[in-house]
Design a binder for these strands. Structure first.
Lengths: 381, 381
DNA sequence: AGAGGTACCGCAAACGTTACCGAAAACCTT
DNA sequence: AAGGTTTTCGGTAACGTTTGCGGTACCTCT
């Protein structure tokens, strides 16, 4: 039984609108609207953190003075500053970044989206980026797309909503549309692509010299006497996969080894995909005696399968990976090392530059790779 | 040459306060303060994202109506709603979470801090937590402390500043003080500890049955004929390290094998520390024939060193790890598997519960482990 | 044709900070 | 001492949203 607050007990109350939780009512006597009583209103706000106004009240100061004191503004008397700082420490005051970012329309955070972080590659990129950003007073918020295009788009939206000041993005293997990236650029927010890049958007990019890396990796196999070199490539959507294929092919051409298209197999970046592709190559009538894999994860799967089938490495089969993932050294995988940490740092430096100066065109950065020779491709190791 | 705006060209202007970038001046004629002209004022705000007020202006509506339309409030005419939604889509409107979190004093984000994420353990925890939280409409913001106590404290402060609604924390190996955790509890913000927990704060915790896991791992070694079982433990500060030691000792006791304190070595969670400790055990006059390592990373280092020294595994030395990290299967490491993903899920569920009902005491959750036997401890594998 | 109801929308306050502007008080000058 | 300076502080608007409350215009009954 709902009663009007003004005319007391009278029941002249009729139902009206349908607001969120509770209903609204109308009293024809008082000609007034009102809503249900909030009985479950928790009596005590359970999460009131200390605010600047609290500090001001305690010290008989204005909010602006407290704010300035906290920021050590020279206009404030040192004694007052000390009083404020002391109380802030005593009450464990934590500034509300939401409010401050809102008025400054700047959040001092950079959003990074990684497609995956089970392998050590992206975590290391993050570490590198964080190092540089921290020095510049920026925080890094990490999102991972889990190799899903939808999640990538969601992540971008989320970060846009959080009003990050800049983006560091590495694409998923399924990403074929780039509207979400273009939207970032259109809004004038600095964006840097790294590792998994695309050519469709005109922003600074950080990559390693994939072509050269693939070339050298393939050359290394050839020079070690392997003539039947296959390549397990990444998804066709990936720019880096394409570059590595070209590098692979060109290395073969240099040594006048015909390219066998059957030995170039695309595969997605899952364990199963890798295993399936490895099996395909093994089962070939004319099977290769060396495999250059797009990345270490795939290379490891190749080695695993080879072991299971009793194929000895590197006698019967040589394997070279890409990245020098942590796991590579444990299983003696020859691999093309990337300066992973440096990729993150470089990307971070580029956003910061862009943040400082939005107008000038900023160059992309191409880092170089280096071959780490281990036992999977050479008898001497 | 600075001139007073009011009295025109007259130079009666004297220097005054010292504000941020520019100076403030005082004109004794006009008796008025003013500051330098902002000449470098960029003519166009370079980052104005579309706001609700923009939409309102375009549609001749009030901000409140637009807000309600975006949230599909029933009070709004469907035609108006559609107009708003369409325009929002066309202009790629992204709600400003800063503002909305501010007024609702709720951010719908949970902060998770991990000590490290080079190994696959914590990334998987994150994946699990995210899955649960996403379903409940929460976002997860990831911070990593890099095994540094200071960074852990900083992370907590950062997350407090970001006004996260809850915390998921796993401690670093150096954490001995818990004031930062107590501060969270004092503020009434839900906190759940997982994996690297401590007993000093009374909050729900998620762990695996470390004692039992260690017991079984040790027992497995004993039952496979190894009598001289050593244990490389984690840092003494870690609760889980202690539990595992107890499990290890109790297993020995069960089979009436005397505990050799020389064979229990603490080590920090770095590669170097692990290697050093392994070397110590190898160099012992009476060296063990089996090692139960605190985690897989250490176990892997043990195996690496053994290989280098020509110690055959498992003939001369058996090794068992803990976690079933990705790497374990590649190198055939016997290990105690933890339901990693589940740890994240459980922790997430606990914060959510706590968020719903702040008063009731919430039970901690202990998940169970299972032994995965591979070639590092058994000839049959 | 009123009267009572409903559908739809706007006003304004609030969230916690920051920053511009101004002003009182304290401090120096002659 | 009187005026000029400087120091130190407060008022206030603004950032973009949300939401309670209230109003107008229309509709639907007798």
């Amino acid at each position: 039984m709902i009663r009007c607050k003004k005319c007391g007990e009278v029941g002249y109350i009729k139902k009206s609108g349908k607001v969120r939780g509770r209903q609204r009512y109308y009293c024809k006597d008082c000609k007034v609207y009102f809503s249900e009583e909030q009985e479950d209103k928790s009596p005590v706000a359970h999460q009131h953190q200390v605010t600047i106004t609290d500090l001001a009240r305690h010290l008989n100061l204005s909010a602006s003075t407290v704010s300035r004191a906290l920021h050590k503004h020279p206009d404030i008397n040192l004694a007052t500053q000390k009083k404020v700082l002391d109380l802030a420490a005593r009450l464990d005051y934590q500034p509300n970044m939401l409010a401050s970012s809102l008025v400054k329309s700047k959040s001092f955070t950079i959003g990074i989206v990684v497609p995956e972080f089970i392998n050590s590659f992206f975590p290391n990129v993050i570490l590198g980026a964080e190092e540089v950003l921290a020095k510049a007073g920026y925080k890094l918020v990490i999102c991972h797309s889990n190799e899903s295009y939808e999640r990538e788009v969601e992540n971008v939206k989320l970060l846009l909503s959080s009003r990050v000041d800049g983006f560091l993005i590495s694409l998923t293997q399924e990403t074929k549309k780039y509207d979400h990236l273009k939207a970032i650029v259109a809004k004038g927010i600095p964006l840097v692509l790294y590792n998994r890049i695309c050519t469709e958007v005109d922003v600074p990019k950080v990559t390693v010299n994939d072509y050269e890396g693939a070339f050298k990796a393939t050359e290394h196999l050839i020079l070690n006497g392997y003539r039947k070199v296959a390549h397990i490539a990444g998804p066709q959507t990936l720019q880096i996969a394409q570059s590595r294929i070209t590098g692979y092919k060109d290395a073969l051409k240099k040594y006048e080894i015909p390219v066998n298209e059957d030995w170039i197999r695309h595969c997605d970046l899952s364990f199963e995909g890798a295993k399936r592709t490895a099996a395909y190559l093994f089962d070939l009538e004319n099977s290769p005696d060396a495999i250059f894999a797009m990345n270490d994860t795939i290379a490891v799967e190749v080695i695993q399968l080879a072991k299971m089938r009793g194929i000895s490495i590197p006698a019967q089969l040589a394997v070279v990976g890409f990245s020098d993932d942590i796991i590579a050294q444990f299983i003696g995988l020859t691999t093309m090392a990337q300066p992973v940490r440096e990729i993150g740092k470089a990307a971070a430096r580029l956003v910061l530059q862009r943040l400082k100066n939005r107008d000038v065109h900023i160059e992309s950065k191409i880092l170089s790779t280096s071959l780490v020779i281990r036992s999977s491709s050479s008898h001497n190791h």
